[in-house]
Nucleic acid binder design. Structure first.
Lengths: 327, 327
DNA sequence: TCCTAGCACTCTTATTAATCGATTGCTAAA
DNA sequence: TTTAGCAATCGATTAATAAGAGTGCTAGGA
């Protein structure tokens, strides 16, 4: 259990280090508190023994350990309000009724990335209530037909089918079959239905039914697939913990690795903070994320930055965005 | 005019410097040629006076100047054949008939980026012969209707319209109007037609015609807009000329700047090389690009790397891809 | 006239040493 | 329990030195 004074010291060190990125010494703290540097040194030693502080070398000032950050965000962090300018900028996005949800998300995350110098990720999973609404075709010319799939939430996906191996008639029949049999099916069950209800039937009267089946399989896979967007990646380069190129490359590669990014999915409804080794992404970063859920959509938004991150600001922004989206 | 020997020296220096990124000295060259290092030093001095070579400091070996690279690519470069593995990998992409052109392009550029460690850009302009084929609507529920636009080349774009300020009837009427009046119009002329032929008419019987007009304007703008894709951006980090983070940030920011990227458009049909200051992107890079043109599509593909680039390899690859696409 | 051996000179890189300044841990006194 | 004082530690900076690579120039030889 920490004393009041120890908590104050820890908090000051965290805030100071976040601001200046330099180890914090006892002398600096002694002017901010009403006791001598020697006293503070003694407390620092205890905090270090408890694993909340670290030194970069024997005679350096202290920096927070991962545990130190953890204690700070769990017990000491105070959320201040967003400032007027930030709210104003975000509101212009949320008030734009022209935009679709995914655009609102990416635009607001762009703002957040600009305001914080961190990197944002949105992972947009379509909701389970998303059902196939209609599938229609537009014959373009003798060689090409466009198949268009629409869900009851207004998602659209399309695929071009060449009329070489299959005829327009065959495509039409298949589409009618799908419209008759599987309209209304939730999108994540469609692949199964397609295989077991449609494939056997078309197999009977379409010569090259594999081609047709694959085309439809593709378009349904696309529409049920996750939409991932990384915003403000270049902000990584602004932080001095990432001043060495190979570290940067490491993180950039991870930010392009789809399976890595899909892992970021958060089901918990709170704003969750994963500091350093607590996240699976990279031990040198902190990931703050939350899930969101509307009647059409659900997904995760995440902010990634150095462990030395403005936790309070990011938590506030994320919370604000989550609430606005869910309205 | 350069003598044979001077050309040989220049070529060796370019190749050696591309390989090892270290200034090339006279001693190294003397073992590759049948004359003494003193002779080579004299020739180097002349080449430097002509502006083809540079020194990094008074007593360093030589590196090629931009003019030196220019002379090399114009007069000395020999194109070797692609190796079997490279051809094989690319062929698996080109032979996949399932893929649309833009997918073929981005996949083959991914391969090129992997094979070369450079960065690729594709800029896909839709051809002028692309005409509006059909516009159709799918009413999703009482509050939402999806508008889908298809061109005669099989491009699809869509937009959701909320049925709050406008009614389904009004949307239907407008769509009928568009289908009657401007189907067959080249996509880059549609905006104008929309404004002068459709807008005045719907203004008469649609209360909130601005909303409807804007929605259609948006979707036509989208479909005629350029498609830009940057592949292998992280490869920038592999080259020692970009080992300092602020330089990297500079280039990365440019690679996300849409207007910068649109400038890359090349109308010339050859493989063109822009070394250092010859390109508008950044004086420390070389851009090699060419345009391509199929019956559906036209655009530009470009490779970006350090000036110390494997010119021969990149030119070969770009040429190969261009030819395959245009088949 | 062209080529080359030889050599002094220049500049980079690596290594070591010396100094400065910040900060700590410890001790002893308040 | 707090604090003043002080030796000790270590990073960062600067200076000095040496080693190595490469050049430009000169003078002699083909």
């Amino acid at each position: 259990m920490l004393t009041k004074r120890q908590e104050e010291i820890l908090k000051l060190i965290v805030l100071e280090y976040i601001k200046l990125a330099k180890p914090v010494g006892s002398k600096l703290l002694s002017v901010k508190m009403k006791c001598s540097s020697a006293t503070i040194r003694n407390e620092m030693m205890e905090l270090e023994e408890m694993g909340l502080l670290e030194k970069t070398h024997t005679s350096s000032g202290r920096i927070p350990s991962e545990q130190g950050y953890r204690y700070y965000v769990d017990n000491l962090m105070q959320l201040k309000e967003l400032n007027g300018e930030e709210v104003f900028k975000l509101q212009t996005v949320f008030n734009n009724t022209q935009l679709e949800l995914s655009d609102v998300l990416s635009k607001s995350l762009e703002l957040v990335s600009d305001m914080t110098s961190y990197t944002s990720i949105m992972l947009d999973t379509k909701s389970h209530d998303n059902k196939l609404k209609e599938i229609s075709i537009v014959p373009v010319d003798k060689e090409l037909v466009v198949v268009i799939v629409v869900t009851d939430q207004g998602y659209v996906e399309h695929k071009n089918i060449e009329l070489k191996e299959v005829s327009l008639e065959e495509v039409k029949k298949t589409v009618k079959l799908i419209n008759d049999l599987i309209v209304g099916t939730p999108i994540d069950e469609i692949s199964a239905k397609l295989e077991f209800e449609i494939k056997p039937v078309i197999g009977k009267y379409v010569r090259q039914h594999e081609i047709l089946y694959n085309a439809f399989y593709d378009v349904f896979t696309d529409i049920s697939s996750k939409n991932i967007n990384v915003v403000g990646k270049n902000n990584i380069l602004k932080h001095q913990e990432f001043s060495n190129v190979s570290k940067v490359k490491d993180i950039f590669d991870k930010l392009e690795d789809r399976t890595m990014l899909e892992n970021i999915k958060e089901s918990d409804n709170n704003i969750n903070i994963y500091i350093g080794h607590e996240n699976k992404m990279d031990p040198d970063v902190t990931v703050i994320k939350t899930n969101y859920k509307t009647n059409k959509d659900e997904g995760t938004i995440a902010i990634i930055g150095p462990k030395r991150m403005e936790y309070d600001k990011v938590v506030n922004l994320l919370d604000y965005i989550k609430k606005q989206i869910e309205r």
